[in-house]
Structure formats: C-alpha cells, structure tokens
C-alpha cells in the first residue's frame, strides 16, 4: 500500500466515524425502551401517533404541491430565457439567488408583521390552512435551487436545435417542450423536484413563526420536548425518507433505455 493510499484510508475512516457514530448512537438511543432494555417502542410510537402521521401527511402534501408549482414556473421560464432572452440569463441568475441571500426568517417575520398591523391575514382564505399558507413561501424558497438544477440540465443539451427540429416537424412550442425537451432533461427536473421535497420536509422557521404547527418538522421538535426517544426515531425516519427519495430520483434519472441495456 502506498503512502498516499494509506492516508486516504485513514481520512475515509475518520470521516466515516465522524458521520456514522452519531447516527449509530441515535439508532441505539431510539431503540431503548422506556422501562430499560431494547425494543421498538419509540419507532412504533411514530406510526401509532395520529398527530405525527397527520403532520407527515400535511408536509408531504405541501411538498408535492410546492414541487408542482415550482416546476410549472421554472421549466418554461428557463427554456424561454435560453431560447428567446439569453441576454437576461445573468439578471435571472442574480434574481434566483435572492431567496438564498434573504433568510427565511426575514420573509416570515415580514409577513407576520404586516398581518399583525392589518389586524389579520391579508387573504384569510389563503392563510386558513397550512398547505395554502406555507406553499407560496416554500415555492419562493425552492425557486433558486430548482432553477439552477433545471437550467444546468438545459445547458447540457442542444436545446435550440431540439426545439427547432420539433417545430420543423409540425410541433407547437408546448408540444415540443412536453414531448421532446422534458424527457431529455428528466433527471434535472427530478433533481429539482427532490430538492424541493427535501427543503419542505426540513423547513421549520417559517412554519413556526407563522404558527402553523401541524407540519412534520415542527411536530418532530414538539415531540422531542416530551419524548426524546421518539424524537430521535423520528429524525432517523425523516433521514431515511430523504435517502429513499434521493435513491429513487437517481435511479429514475440514471435509468437507461431498454434497448440500451439489451445492447450492452
């Protein structure tokens, strides 16, 4: 083994211990039974707790709606900018960074302040449920990440040629986008969707400031105050959900065509 290789193994081992040890400790802790010994009590508590399940359902619903809205906004915009307004690409790039630069707390505090001064929500119907109230904020939060992902996907393909070829063959612009461009940038779009899901499933600041306590991340924190073991099991569970989603996205994105597999 060369000197360089040895070092690589050492560094990898240290990194693995650093990342895995807390997870293993958490797993061990989550498996401790309240009365002593080990058991699945904390994990079973997750699935048997109606509040937690409802919160997970709410968050997934927000996540899906947010992802759909974000993609509906981002994909046509990114394509349009690349095809028709390439000069605007720089401006849009800066604009998409804004939500990262401005912390979510500023946005949430701002809207809370406005509502307090007006004596209630500006659009009561919108703020009646957490899904309708939080989705607009999450859309704004997710926009920069989704735009980057989709735009990078578009940069990697001969977009103009593909669209022109489709139009030349009789397809209108919407058809060209749906039938030709979207399948080609599928992995980028899935990546954007995944980033959005992950963001929504981890967002806590805005939800808490605006007092929507029925989302999954907020529920984890609430549970943690009274039942530490369940909270840790929940954290691990959400980590697992994220990994499964990531795996699903990379499998779907990297999936090769049937003919491809047959020939290789």
């Amino acid at each position: 083994m060369t000197r360089g290789r040895r070092w690589r193994v050492v560094v990898l081992a240290i990194a693995a211990v650093y990342f895995l040890l807390p997870l293993l400790a958490a797993a061990e802790f989550s498996l401790r039974s309240p009365g002593g010994g080990y058991g699945l009590a904390n994990w079973l508590a997750i699935v048997s707790d109606p509040v937690l399940l409802a919160a997970l359902g709410t968050s997934l619903q927000i996540a899906v709606v947010t992802a759909v809205v974000v993609l509906a906004l981002v994909v046509p915009t990114a394509v349009w900018v690349r095809l028709q307004l390439p000069g605007l690409a720089g401006v849009l790039e800066s604009a998409t960074i804004l939500p990262i630069v401005i912390p979510p707390v500023v946005m949430a505090a701002g809207i809370a302040f406005v509502q307090a001064n007006l004596g209630g929500p500006v659009f009561p119907a919108l703020f009646a449920s957490s899904t309708t109230a939080l989705t607009p904020f999450y859309v704004i939060l997710a926009l920069p990440f989704a735009y980057r992902a989709v735009d990078n996907g578009l940069a990697a393909i001969p977009l103009r040629t593909l669209v022109e070829a489709a139009r030349n063959l009789g397809a209108g612009l919407p058809t060209a986008l749906l039938r030709v461009v979207l399948p080609v940038i599928r992995s980028a779009v899935l990546g954007a969707a995944f980033l959005t899901l992950a963001l929504v499933l981890g967002e806590i600041v805005i939800a808490r400031i605006l007092l929507y306590t029925d989302t999954f991340p907020v529920a984890i924190v609430e549970v943690g105050r009274s039942r530490a073991g369940v909270a840790v099991a929940l954290s691990l569970a959400s980590l697992l959900i994220t990994w499964v989603l990531l795996l699903a996205v990379s499998l779907a994105g990297g999936r090769r065509s049937p003919a491809d597999r047959a020939s290789s």
Partner: peptide, 9 residues
C-alpha cells in the same frame, strides 16, 4: 440540422 438534432429519448 448540422448535428445533434435527433431526439435523444
């Protein structure tokens, strides 16, 4: 076209 105009999928 010059090249790369076939729909890849």
């Amino acid at each position: 076209f010059q090249a790369y105009s076939l729909f890849p999928t």
